[in-house]
């Protein structure tokens, strides 16, 4: 029934066997996983061992759909980009008015949105002074780190 390839105890045993041998490295590859156990030089004359698992089926493209791309802008415009990857919110709470809208004037420190990453709410600051000209990411959209959220016409 077990699909788990090796228990932690088995890995510890493999290391004990390797440690007593002349080998520095073990590399096992099957359809389901690849395990590399290798000697790591940690300090002066000492060494430790590491285990490196790779489950090939893990595929980045399926993990999350992200929107908004980093874009090149003219000198008169600046981009407000996401400080972190995460969920982008334009308002402090559902149903509240948006922090800013097209046509609003912002300064460097104006909060224009929130990025929720790992249960933490991170404010997004405009970072430049000007007028909001375009909004590139929808409320509630998943965005990549550094993705453009809004465009500001500098003043």
């Amino acid at each position: 029934m077990s699909k788990l390839p090796l228990t932690p105890e088995s890995v510890a045993e493999i290391v004990s066997i390797l440690d007593g041998s002349g080998y520095d490295r073990l590399d096992i590859k099957t359809d389901a996983f690849r395990l590399r156990v290798q000697r790591e030089h940690v300090a002066d004359s000492k060494s430790g061992w590491s285990q490196d698992w790779d489950f090939s089926a893990q595929d980045a493209s399926k993990s999350a759909e992200t929107t908004a791309l980093v874009e090149q802008l003219a000198d008169s415009l600046c981009a407000i980009s996401a400080p972190l990857p995460g969920m982008f919110y334009r308002a402090p709470q559902p149903g509240s008015p948006a922090f800013v809208d097209i046509g609003d004037t912002v300064t460097q420190d104006t909060v224009v949105g929130i990025i929720e990453t790992m249960k933490l709410m991170n404010p997004v600051h405009a970072g430049c002074a000007g007028v909001i000209e375009g909004i590139c990411a929808e409320n509630g959209a998943m965005v990549d780190g550094a993705a453009t959220l809004m465009r500001v016409r500098k003043i």
Binding site: V11, S16, V37, E40, S50, Q51, D52
Partner: peptide, 10 residues
């Protein structure tokens, strides 16, 4: 991700 391994390590 190279995690440590060996006796007494989990």
């Amino acid at each position: 991700a190279a995690w440590p391994a060996g006796p007494g390590i989990r």
